[in-house]
Amino acid sequence: MLVELDVFSGRPNPRWELDEQRSQELRQLERRLTPAREAAPEPPGLGYRGFVYSDASGQVRAYRGYVKTPRTVLADPSFSVEKYLRDQLPAEYAELGDMIAAELTPK
């Protein structure tokens, strides 16, 4: 599974592959989520805009405690999907981890 951290404006966003085992783990996390009762927040223009990946239904964006799929919006109040993907960041982007951690707090 190809994952993109949507964060940059000028330089290309970090992208990396999740192996099959981690892809399965991500799907399991997604399956535990329940539909959100409110609309997901819109990402800002500049800065952290979430993680983007594809599942069977199409492109998915996990941003600030919500997982938006082509069919529905799932609530993820513990940021489980974003935290999982943050932990999978390739070593060359490790310095982005702290910046993402600061974003994953309830507002």
Partner: peptide, 23 residues
């Protein structure tokens, strides 16, 4: 976080600025 990223704006007709954050 020095070295992260850059961003550009363009002056538009009407006195405002346009931009395109990444993709």
């Amino acid at each position: 976080a020095p070295g992260f990223d850059y961003h550009w704006y363009r002056h538009q007709r009407g006195g405002f600025w346009g931009h395109k954050p990444g993709g």
